[in-house]
Amino acid sequence: MEIKGEYRIAASREKVFAALNDQAVLQACIPGCESLEMLSPTEMTAKVRLRIGPVSAAFSGKVTLSDIDPPNGYKITGEGQGGVAGFAKGGAVVALTADGDDTILKYDVDAQVGGKIAQVGARLIAGTAKKLADQFFGKFAERVGAPPPVAAA
């Protein structure tokens, strides 16, 4: 499934792009992230605990940054194994454009899940992916820019 969104961030593109590559910022923004360790500037291992309603699952996996094009954007990809719950992977193409002093962050997420969650939770997959994407970028925008987002499409 595909999820798109847009945030206005009250910061320069350079600042936003730097934050997108900042391990500490990513760890703080990835929903449920318990640890994020850098293996290289573009590769990290992550532990994430997700609690969606009655479901609670711990995922471990990696986060990869690619198509890096400062300060225009990059692609951030995560994939994790959640044990019995199955696995999830998702990539977000992030594009930054300047708008006056602000930066417009657009994201385009493509997410896939497999295993038990795909089999029994089909009705919730899209909503959950959207929620997580919104949480990540919402928190990111909040943290990097001063005022909270005004537009989430």
Binding site: P54, V55, K116
Partner: peptide, 23 residues
């Protein structure tokens, strides 16, 4: 942190049966 209240259990028990939570 991992304690859960259960009222009717109509959502919780099916979730537990699928091992999608470990309270």
């Amino acid at each position: 942190e991992e304690a859960r209240p259960m009222s009717g259990g109509m959502t919780l028990i099916p979730t537990l049966k699928q091992r999608l939570a470990r309270p």
